[in-house]
Design a protein around this nucleic acid. Structure first.
Length: 397
DNA sequence: TCTGGGGTCCTAGGACCC
DNA sequence: TCTGGGGTCCTAGGACCC
Protein backbone atom coordinates (compact mmCIF):
# COMPACT_ATOMS: atom_id res chain seq x y z
CA UNK A 1 0.00 0.00 0.00
CA UNK A 2 0.99 3.61 -0.57
CA UNK A 3 0.28 6.77 1.35
CA UNK A 4 -0.06 10.09 -0.38
CA UNK A 5 0.47 12.99 2.01
CA UNK A 6 -0.44 16.54 1.08
CA UNK A 7 0.09 19.65 3.20
CA UNK A 8 -3.07 21.76 3.59
CA UNK A 9 -2.99 25.27 2.08
CA UNK A 10 0.74 25.01 2.55
CA UNK A 11 2.11 28.55 1.99
CA UNK A 12 -0.76 30.15 3.90
CA UNK A 13 -0.42 27.65 6.75
CA UNK A 14 3.29 28.43 7.13
CA UNK A 15 2.47 32.13 7.38
CA UNK A 16 -0.13 31.42 10.06
CA UNK A 17 2.35 29.27 11.89
CA UNK A 18 5.01 31.98 11.85
CA UNK A 19 2.56 34.70 12.85
CA UNK A 20 0.01 33.39 15.39
CA UNK A 21 -2.13 36.51 14.95
CA UNK A 22 -3.06 35.25 11.50
CA UNK A 23 -4.43 31.93 12.73
CA UNK A 24 -8.13 31.47 12.05
CA UNK A 25 -8.10 34.40 9.64
CA UNK A 26 -8.23 34.67 5.86
CA UNK A 27 -4.63 34.73 4.58
CA UNK A 28 -3.77 35.10 0.91
CA UNK A 29 -0.20 34.48 -0.26
CA UNK A 30 1.12 35.59 -3.63
CA UNK A 31 1.04 39.05 -5.15
CA UNK A 32 -0.09 42.20 -3.35
CA UNK A 33 -3.47 43.76 -4.18
CA UNK A 34 -3.13 46.48 -6.78
CA UNK A 35 -0.46 44.66 -8.74
CA UNK A 36 -1.53 44.48 -12.33
CA UNK A 37 -0.40 40.99 -13.13
CA UNK A 38 -0.31 39.08 -9.85
CA UNK A 39 -2.22 35.99 -8.85
CA UNK A 40 -2.96 34.04 -5.66
CA UNK A 41 -0.37 31.38 -4.87
CA UNK A 42 -2.21 29.99 -1.85
CA UNK A 43 -5.27 30.86 0.22
CA UNK A 44 -6.03 29.71 3.77
CA UNK A 45 -9.26 27.79 4.23
CA UNK A 46 -10.71 30.87 5.93
CA UNK A 47 -10.03 32.81 2.71
CA UNK A 48 -11.44 30.05 0.53
CA UNK A 49 -14.82 30.59 2.19
CA UNK A 50 -14.94 33.89 0.32
CA UNK A 51 -14.33 32.13 -2.98
CA UNK A 52 -10.61 32.89 -3.17
CA UNK A 53 -8.46 30.15 -4.67
CA UNK A 54 -4.99 29.74 -6.11
CA UNK A 55 -4.21 31.05 -9.61
CA UNK A 56 -6.97 33.66 -9.24
CA UNK A 57 -5.93 37.21 -10.25
CA UNK A 58 -5.10 39.06 -7.07
CA UNK A 59 -7.47 41.96 -7.67
CA UNK A 60 -10.36 39.59 -8.03
CA UNK A 61 -9.37 37.98 -4.74
CA UNK A 62 -9.26 41.40 -3.14
CA UNK A 63 -12.78 42.20 -4.29
CA UNK A 64 -14.02 38.92 -2.79
CA UNK A 65 -12.06 39.26 0.44
CA UNK A 66 -11.03 42.87 1.18
CA UNK A 67 -10.36 42.14 4.85
CA UNK A 68 -7.93 39.31 4.23
CA UNK A 69 -4.23 39.55 5.04
CA UNK A 70 -2.17 39.66 1.85
CA UNK A 71 1.44 38.48 1.90
CA UNK A 72 4.19 37.93 -0.63
CA UNK A 73 5.43 34.37 -1.12
CA UNK A 74 8.58 33.45 0.83
CA UNK A 75 9.76 30.46 -1.16
CA UNK A 76 12.94 30.01 0.85
CA UNK A 77 10.96 29.64 4.07
CA UNK A 78 8.50 27.21 2.48
CA UNK A 79 11.34 25.08 1.13
CA UNK A 80 12.81 24.97 4.62
CA UNK A 81 9.52 23.88 6.17
CA UNK A 82 8.93 21.36 3.39
CA UNK A 83 12.28 19.82 4.20
CA UNK A 84 11.27 19.34 7.86
CA UNK A 85 8.10 17.55 6.85
CA UNK A 86 9.83 15.32 4.31
CA UNK A 87 12.34 14.18 6.90
CA UNK A 88 9.46 13.08 9.14
CA UNK A 89 8.09 10.95 6.30
CA UNK A 90 11.47 9.23 6.14
CA UNK A 91 10.81 7.83 9.64
CA UNK A 92 8.02 5.69 8.20
CA UNK A 93 9.62 4.17 5.14
CA UNK A 94 12.95 4.06 3.34
CA UNK A 95 11.05 4.81 0.15
CA UNK A 96 9.66 8.36 0.14
CA UNK A 97 9.02 10.04 -3.17
CA UNK A 98 8.68 13.80 -2.99
CA UNK A 99 6.33 15.07 -5.71
CA UNK A 100 6.45 18.80 -5.13
CA UNK A 101 7.11 21.25 -2.34
CA UNK A 102 4.00 20.12 -0.43
CA UNK A 103 3.34 16.46 -1.18
CA UNK A 104 4.94 13.03 -1.22
CA UNK A 105 4.26 9.34 -1.60
CA UNK A 106 5.29 6.98 1.18
CA UNK A 107 5.73 3.36 0.13
CA UNK A 108 4.39 1.22 2.97
CA UNK A 109 5.09 -2.16 1.39
CA UNK A 110 7.20 -4.02 3.88
CA UNK A 111 6.48 -1.76 6.85
CA UNK A 112 3.59 -3.84 8.25
CA UNK A 113 5.68 -5.50 10.93
CA UNK A 114 7.24 -2.22 11.98
CA UNK A 115 4.18 -0.03 12.28
CA UNK A 116 1.16 -2.38 12.30
CA UNK A 117 -1.98 -1.78 10.25
CA UNK A 118 -1.53 0.82 7.55
CA UNK A 119 -4.66 2.81 8.42
CA UNK A 120 -3.06 3.36 11.81
CA UNK A 121 0.22 4.37 10.20
CA UNK A 122 -1.66 6.99 8.18
CA UNK A 123 -3.05 8.53 11.36
CA UNK A 124 0.34 8.34 13.06
CA UNK A 125 1.92 10.28 10.19
CA UNK A 126 -0.69 13.02 10.59
CA UNK A 127 -0.08 13.19 14.32
CA UNK A 128 3.71 13.24 14.00
CA UNK A 129 3.69 16.03 11.41
CA UNK A 130 1.34 18.17 13.50
CA UNK A 131 3.39 17.66 16.68
CA UNK A 132 6.74 18.29 15.07
CA UNK A 133 5.88 21.13 12.68
CA UNK A 134 2.47 22.52 13.61
CA UNK A 135 1.13 21.78 10.12
CA UNK A 136 -1.85 19.66 9.13
CA UNK A 137 -1.81 17.20 6.26
CA UNK A 138 -4.36 15.27 4.24
CA UNK A 139 -3.63 11.61 3.64
CA UNK A 140 -4.77 9.04 1.09
CA UNK A 141 -4.14 5.31 1.40
CA UNK A 142 -4.50 2.88 -1.51
CA UNK A 143 -2.89 -0.03 -3.30
CA UNK A 144 -1.23 2.25 -5.84
CA UNK A 145 0.06 5.81 -5.94
CA UNK A 146 -2.43 7.11 -8.48
CA UNK A 147 -5.44 6.23 -6.35
CA UNK A 148 -3.72 7.27 -3.11
CA UNK A 149 -3.15 10.68 -4.65
CA UNK A 150 -6.80 11.13 -5.57
CA UNK A 151 -7.87 9.80 -2.17
CA UNK A 152 -5.85 12.41 -0.29
CA UNK A 153 -7.58 15.08 -2.36
CA UNK A 154 -10.95 13.74 -1.21
CA UNK A 155 -9.95 14.06 2.43
CA UNK A 156 -8.89 17.73 2.44
CA UNK A 157 -8.35 19.46 4.75
CA UNK A 158 -6.76 17.58 7.63
CA UNK A 159 -8.38 14.27 6.64
CA UNK A 160 -7.74 10.65 5.83
CA UNK A 161 -9.30 8.63 3.00
CA UNK A 162 -8.78 4.92 2.45
CA UNK A 163 -9.54 3.01 -0.74
CA UNK A 164 -9.34 -0.73 0.05
CA UNK A 165 -7.75 -3.06 -2.43
CA UNK A 166 -10.24 -4.19 -5.06
CA UNK A 167 -12.29 -0.98 -4.77
CA UNK A 168 -10.12 1.13 -7.06
CA UNK A 169 -12.27 1.17 -10.17
CA UNK A 170 -15.50 1.57 -8.21
CA UNK A 171 -13.89 4.56 -6.48
CA UNK A 172 -12.93 6.13 -9.80
CA UNK A 173 -16.36 5.59 -11.34
CA UNK A 174 -17.93 8.00 -8.86
CA UNK A 175 -15.59 10.86 -9.81
CA UNK A 176 -16.13 13.54 -12.43
CA UNK A 177 -13.48 13.56 -15.17
CA UNK A 178 -12.15 16.87 -13.85
CA UNK A 179 -10.92 15.10 -10.68
CA UNK A 180 -8.63 12.80 -12.66
CA UNK A 181 -5.01 13.64 -12.16
CA UNK A 182 -3.50 14.18 -15.61
CA UNK A 183 -6.71 15.45 -17.21
CA UNK A 184 -6.38 19.19 -17.67
CA UNK A 185 -8.24 21.70 -19.79
CA UNK A 186 -7.07 20.42 -23.18
CA UNK A 187 -7.45 16.72 -22.50
CA UNK A 188 -10.89 17.32 -21.00
CA UNK A 189 -12.15 19.13 -24.07
CA UNK A 190 -10.68 16.48 -26.35
CA UNK A 191 -12.46 13.78 -24.34
CA UNK A 192 -15.71 15.76 -24.38
CA UNK A 193 -15.57 16.31 -28.11
CA UNK A 194 -15.34 12.55 -28.57
CA UNK A 195 -18.47 11.99 -26.52
CA UNK A 196 -16.68 11.16 -23.27
CA UNK A 197 -18.21 13.13 -20.41
CA UNK A 198 -17.91 10.71 -17.48
CA UNK A 199 -15.54 8.05 -16.20
CA UNK A 200 -18.10 5.45 -17.29
CA UNK A 201 -18.00 6.81 -20.85
CA UNK A 202 -14.23 6.59 -20.72
CA UNK A 203 -14.32 2.99 -19.52
CA UNK A 204 -16.28 2.01 -22.63
CA UNK A 205 -13.68 3.54 -24.94
CA UNK A 206 -11.05 1.13 -26.28
CA UNK A 207 -7.41 2.10 -25.87
CA UNK A 208 -6.69 2.49 -29.63
CA UNK A 209 -9.55 4.99 -29.88
CA UNK A 210 -8.10 7.05 -27.03
CA UNK A 211 -4.67 6.84 -28.66
CA UNK A 212 -6.17 8.27 -31.82
CA UNK A 213 -6.86 11.64 -30.26
CA UNK A 214 -4.73 11.81 -27.08
CA UNK A 215 -1.38 10.53 -28.31
CA UNK A 216 0.06 7.24 -27.19
CA UNK A 217 1.61 8.12 -23.84
CA UNK A 218 -1.28 10.26 -22.60
CA UNK A 219 -3.87 7.72 -23.79
CA UNK A 220 -2.19 4.88 -21.95
CA UNK A 221 -1.97 6.97 -18.82
CA UNK A 222 -5.65 7.97 -18.94
CA UNK A 223 -6.75 4.43 -19.85
CA UNK A 224 -5.16 3.12 -16.67
CA UNK A 225 -6.32 6.07 -14.57
CA UNK A 226 -9.96 5.45 -15.46
CA UNK A 227 -9.57 1.96 -14.02
CA UNK A 228 -7.87 3.09 -10.84
CA UNK A 229 -4.54 1.69 -11.98
CA UNK A 230 -1.06 3.14 -12.09
CA UNK A 231 0.52 3.41 -15.55
CA UNK A 232 3.81 1.54 -15.93
CA UNK A 233 6.81 3.75 -15.41
CA UNK A 234 4.59 6.07 -13.37
CA UNK A 235 6.77 8.72 -11.78
CA UNK A 236 9.83 6.56 -11.42
CA UNK A 237 13.12 8.26 -10.76
CA UNK A 238 12.97 11.55 -12.68
CA UNK A 239 14.86 11.51 -15.97
CA UNK A 240 16.39 14.88 -15.42
CA UNK A 241 16.23 17.82 -13.10
CA UNK A 242 16.18 21.53 -13.76
CA UNK A 243 16.13 24.73 -11.80
CA UNK A 244 14.84 28.10 -12.92
CA UNK A 245 13.96 31.64 -11.94
CA UNK A 246 11.45 33.81 -13.70
CA UNK A 247 9.64 37.06 -13.17
CA UNK A 248 6.58 38.76 -14.57
CA UNK A 249 6.97 42.52 -14.68
CA UNK A 250 4.28 45.00 -13.70
CA UNK A 251 5.04 47.01 -16.82
CA UNK A 252 6.40 45.64 -20.08
CA UNK A 253 10.16 45.73 -20.47
CA UNK A 254 11.20 47.61 -23.59
CA UNK A 255 14.56 49.17 -22.83
CA UNK A 256 17.59 47.05 -23.63
CA UNK A 257 19.53 48.11 -20.53
CA UNK A 258 16.56 47.48 -18.23
CA UNK A 259 16.15 44.04 -19.81
CA UNK A 260 19.83 43.30 -19.22
CA UNK A 261 19.53 44.28 -15.58
CA UNK A 262 16.46 42.08 -15.17
CA UNK A 263 18.36 39.14 -16.70
CA UNK A 264 21.26 39.74 -14.36
CA UNK A 265 18.96 39.76 -11.35
CA UNK A 266 17.46 36.41 -12.40
CA UNK A 267 20.90 34.90 -13.04
CA UNK A 268 22.17 35.96 -9.65
CA UNK A 269 19.15 34.52 -7.82
CA UNK A 270 19.40 31.30 -9.76
CA UNK A 271 23.13 30.84 -9.33
CA UNK A 272 22.94 31.42 -5.59
CA UNK A 273 20.24 28.80 -5.33
CA UNK A 274 22.31 26.36 -7.39
CA UNK A 275 25.30 26.90 -5.12
CA UNK A 276 23.22 26.56 -1.95
CA UNK A 277 21.60 23.34 -3.16
CA UNK A 278 24.81 22.08 -4.75
CA UNK A 279 23.77 21.61 -8.38
CA UNK A 280 25.77 22.01 -11.57
CA UNK A 281 24.78 21.97 -15.22
CA UNK A 282 25.80 22.83 -18.77
CA UNK A 283 22.44 23.57 -20.40
CA UNK A 284 21.13 27.10 -20.09
CA UNK A 285 17.62 28.15 -21.09
CA UNK A 286 16.07 31.59 -21.56
CA UNK A 287 12.32 32.12 -21.64
CA UNK A 288 10.59 35.18 -23.04
CA UNK A 289 6.89 35.95 -22.72
CA UNK A 290 5.75 38.94 -24.78
CA UNK A 291 2.98 41.32 -23.79
CA UNK A 292 0.51 39.37 -25.96
CA UNK A 293 1.36 36.27 -23.88
CA UNK A 294 3.09 34.41 -26.69
CA UNK A 295 5.98 32.54 -25.14
CA UNK A 296 9.21 31.27 -26.60
CA UNK A 297 12.36 29.75 -25.24
CA UNK A 298 15.83 28.96 -26.40
CA UNK A 299 18.38 26.66 -24.85
CA UNK A 300 21.95 25.64 -25.49
CA UNK A 301 24.24 23.01 -24.07
CA UNK A 302 27.89 23.87 -23.79
CA UNK A 303 30.91 21.76 -22.95
CA UNK A 304 31.58 23.48 -19.66
CA UNK A 305 29.54 23.74 -16.50
CA UNK A 306 28.06 27.10 -15.59
CA UNK A 307 30.66 28.47 -13.21
CA UNK A 308 29.21 31.71 -11.81
CA UNK A 309 26.33 34.15 -12.03
CA UNK A 310 28.55 36.19 -14.32
CA UNK A 311 29.06 33.22 -16.63
CA UNK A 312 25.34 32.40 -16.53
CA UNK A 313 24.51 36.00 -17.38
CA UNK A 314 26.82 36.00 -20.39
CA UNK A 315 25.30 32.81 -21.76
CA UNK A 316 21.74 33.99 -21.06
CA UNK A 317 22.39 37.30 -22.80
CA UNK A 318 23.69 35.55 -25.89
CA UNK A 319 20.63 33.31 -26.05
CA UNK A 320 18.30 36.24 -25.42
CA UNK A 321 19.82 38.22 -28.29
CA UNK A 322 19.37 35.28 -30.65
CA UNK A 323 15.69 35.02 -29.86
CA UNK A 324 14.41 38.49 -29.03
CA UNK A 325 12.08 40.09 -31.57
CA UNK A 326 12.08 43.61 -30.09
CA UNK A 327 8.55 43.64 -28.71
CA UNK A 328 7.46 44.46 -25.15
CA UNK A 329 8.33 41.78 -22.60
CA UNK A 330 5.96 40.62 -19.89
CA UNK A 331 8.06 37.80 -18.41
CA UNK A 332 11.70 36.78 -18.42
CA UNK A 333 13.04 33.47 -17.19
CA UNK A 334 16.43 31.80 -16.89
CA UNK A 335 16.95 28.11 -16.21
CA UNK A 336 19.66 25.48 -16.01
CA UNK A 337 18.57 22.04 -17.19
CA UNK A 338 19.98 18.52 -16.97
CA UNK A 339 21.36 19.23 -13.52
CA UNK A 340 23.94 16.99 -11.95
CA UNK A 341 24.80 16.78 -8.29
CA UNK A 342 27.71 19.14 -7.60
CA UNK A 343 29.31 17.02 -4.86
CA UNK A 344 31.89 15.27 -6.98
CA UNK A 345 32.73 18.40 -8.97
CA UNK A 346 36.31 18.33 -10.22
CA UNK A 347 36.64 21.96 -9.22
CA UNK A 348 40.25 22.65 -10.10
CA UNK A 349 40.43 22.05 -13.82
CA UNK A 350 36.86 23.15 -14.36
CA UNK A 351 37.49 26.84 -14.69
CA UNK A 352 40.05 29.10 -16.17
CA UNK A 353 41.46 31.84 -13.99
CA UNK A 354 38.78 34.47 -14.64
CA UNK A 355 35.96 32.03 -14.09
CA UNK A 356 37.49 30.80 -10.89
CA UNK A 357 37.77 34.32 -9.58
CA UNK A 358 34.09 34.99 -10.16
CA UNK A 359 33.16 31.65 -8.66
CA UNK A 360 35.17 32.31 -5.48
CA UNK A 361 33.81 35.80 -5.11
CA UNK A 362 30.24 34.61 -5.39
CA UNK A 363 30.87 31.82 -2.92
CA UNK A 364 32.09 34.33 -0.37
CA UNK A 365 29.08 36.59 -0.91
CA UNK A 366 26.81 33.58 -0.53
CA UNK A 367 28.44 32.61 2.77
CA UNK A 368 27.97 36.14 4.07
CA UNK A 369 24.36 36.24 2.99
CA UNK A 370 23.62 32.92 4.62
CA UNK A 371 24.89 34.28 7.91
CA UNK A 372 23.03 37.54 7.52
CA UNK A 373 20.23 37.43 4.95
CA UNK A 374 19.70 41.19 5.16
CA UNK A 375 23.23 42.07 4.20
CA UNK A 376 22.93 44.59 1.36
CA UNK A 377 25.66 43.20 -0.88
CA UNK A 378 24.78 42.99 -4.52
CA UNK A 379 25.97 43.89 -8.00
CA UNK A 380 26.24 47.63 -8.53
CA UNK A 381 23.95 47.27 -11.51
CA UNK A 382 21.20 45.76 -9.36
CA UNK A 383 21.53 48.40 -6.68
CA UNK A 384 18.72 50.82 -7.60
CA UNK A 385 16.08 48.18 -7.04
CA UNK A 386 17.42 46.61 -3.84
CA UNK A 387 17.19 48.34 -0.43
CA UNK A 388 18.02 51.92 -1.26
CA UNK A 389 18.79 52.94 2.31
CA UNK A 390 22.43 52.97 3.40
CA UNK A 391 23.78 50.54 0.83
CA UNK A 392 25.46 53.04 -1.45
CA UNK A 393 28.99 51.98 -0.61
CA UNK A 394 28.44 48.22 -0.80
CA UNK A 395 28.48 47.43 -4.49
CA UNK A 396 30.18 44.13 -5.21
CA UNK A 397 31.65 45.19 -8.51
C1' DT B 1 -11.04 36.19 -14.45
C1' DC B 2 -6.32 38.56 -19.13
C1' DT B 3 -3.64 34.63 -17.23
C1' DG B 4 2.48 33.67 -11.03
C1' DG B 5 6.50 30.84 -10.25
C1' DG B 6 8.56 26.43 -10.12
C1' DG B 7 8.71 22.10 -11.97
C1' DT B 8 8.30 17.30 -15.16
C1' DC B 9 7.24 14.74 -19.20
C1' DC B 10 5.95 14.05 -24.14
C1' DT B 11 6.09 15.04 -29.08
C1' DA B 12 7.47 16.64 -33.60
C1' DG B 13 10.89 17.91 -36.60
C1' DG B 14 15.68 18.54 -38.00
C1' DA B 15 20.52 17.00 -38.06
C1' DC B 16 23.27 13.34 -38.48
C1' DC B 17 24.75 8.52 -38.93
C1' DC B 18 25.02 3.79 -41.17
C1' DT C 1 19.71 11.67 -60.47
C1' DC C 2 14.91 13.31 -57.42
C1' DT C 3 15.92 9.62 -53.55
C1' DG C 4 15.08 3.68 -48.43
C1' DG C 5 14.91 2.36 -43.75
C1' DG C 6 16.71 2.28 -39.43
C1' DG C 7 18.45 4.66 -35.52
C1' DT C 8 20.01 8.54 -32.06
C1' DC C 9 20.37 13.11 -30.29
C1' DC C 10 18.93 17.81 -29.77
C1' DT C 11 15.65 21.65 -29.58
C1' DA C 12 11.17 24.17 -29.12
C1' DG C 13 6.75 23.97 -27.77
C1' DG C 14 2.91 22.22 -25.30
C1' DA C 15 0.32 19.85 -21.55
C1' DC C 16 0.00 19.19 -16.94
C1' DC C 17 0.87 19.57 -11.94
C1' DC C 18 1.06 22.22 -7.31
Amino acid sequence: MFLHVDLDAFFASVEQLDNPQLRGKPVIVGAMPGSKRGVVAAASYEARKFGVHSAMPIDQAYRLCPNGTYLRSRMGRYREKSHEVMSIFAEFSPDVQQMSIDEAFIDLRGTLRLFGPQEETALTVKKRVLEATGLTVSVGLASNRYVAKIASGMSKPDGFFYVPEGQEQAFMEKLPLTKLWGVGEKTLSRLNSHGIHTVQDGLKTPLPVLEGFLGQANAQFIYKALRGMEASGFRDAPQSRSISAENTYEDNLEDRYVIGTALMDLCQNLMFRMMKEDWKGKTVCVKIRYSDFTTTSIQETSLRYVSSAEDLFNRATELFDKKYNGRGIRLLGVGVMNLESGCEAPQEDLFDFGQKKHHKLEEVVLQLKMKNPNLPITKARLLQKSSKANSSEKGED
